[in-house]
Simulated assay, not measured.
Amino acid sequence: MAKQIDPAKMSRRQQVVETFRMSKEVDRALPWWMLGAFLVFGAIGFGIFWILPGSGTFALVMAIVGGVLVGLLAMMIVFSRRAQRAAYARLEGQLGAAARALTMLRRGWQLEEMIGFTKQQDMVHRVVGPPGIVLVGEGNASRLRPLLTSERKKHERVAAEFPVHEVVVGPGEGQVRLPELVRHVRKLGRQVKPAEMTDILYRLKALDAQRPKVPLPRGPVPTSMKGLRQNLRGR
């Protein structure tokens, strides 16, 4: 079995190649979609630059260069969208999938994985960000409900004046599907200021100090998510 490499130690080219390889395992049509986007939008770009004022060799060169640039941009957009979809497909159904997806939240967000759990491997993660405190549960909905209620009470005791949100990941009614999780959390709005977030995190330190650290299992799936975050978003 090939040894997994930490994405942080990869070059940008290696990360893109790894993201493409893992995405292609799930989405076999990915290369054809990328090729189609390059050809179609490259042709459109060529046409746009060709009709601009100018003539002769210079106009032809500019049309070719413009077409290639537009085609490459379209190809990378298609790559980004389909690779992200493939990454979520790889994550879905795996232990700790919600925590892996939540790593897509970067600037202005603080993620703590598995702050609560059951013996049946149901778990609750916490994100602190502009909406306040967001408790994200994954697992069996009936077992998660008392676990989320318990965690909510703990958090309200130490940060009563700040909003606490509950999210359950899953396909059921009132739940949020994994591919929509990050967008759903972001759409909870801005209810706390950056300075207040610092205050929240300080208050939660004492609460977290009482918890046993149970690390989530790592594997090849997070690599794809990190590759998307670091490369396709240009960060």
Rank of each mutant, 00 (worst) to 15 (best):
K154A: 11
L148P: 15
M104Q: 12
R152F: 00
Q84Y: 08
G116V: 04
M104K: 11
E113L: 01
L135W: 09
L111I: 06
F117R: 12
P130E: 05
L148I: 05
V127E: 02
T149Q: 14
A83Q: 04
A141F: 04
T118I: 04
R85T: 15
R90V: 09
T149N: 15
P130C: 01
S80H: 10
I115L: 02
Q84W: 08
V124K: 07
T149S: 11
M114V: 15
R143W: 02
V136F: 07
M76V: 01
Q110W: 01
K154G: 06
A89I: 02
L105K: 08
F117T: 08
A86V: 13
R82N: 09
R152E: 15
E92V: 12
L91M: 15
T118Q: 05
L148H: 15
L147F: 05
A86K: 06
Q121I: 14
Q120H: 14
E92H: 13
A83F: 09
D122P: 00
L111R: 01
E113H: 05
R81Y: 06
E112Y: 05
R126L: 10
R81L: 15
R85I: 14
Q110H: 14
A101C: 12
G132K: 03
Q120K: 06
A97H: 13
V136D: 01
R107E: 14
R152D: 05
M123H: 03
I77R: 12
P131G: 02
Q120F: 03
G132Q: 06
K154H: 12
Q120T: 14
N140Y: 06
L111W: 07
V127L: 13
R145E: 11
T149V: 04
L102K: 02
V128M: 00
M104C: 07
L105H: 08
L148E: 08
P130R: 04
I77A: 11
R145C: 00
R152I: 04
R126K: 11
G116T: 06
R143T: 05
L135G: 04
A98G: 02
Q121T: 11
K153N: 12
L111Q: 00
G137W: 10
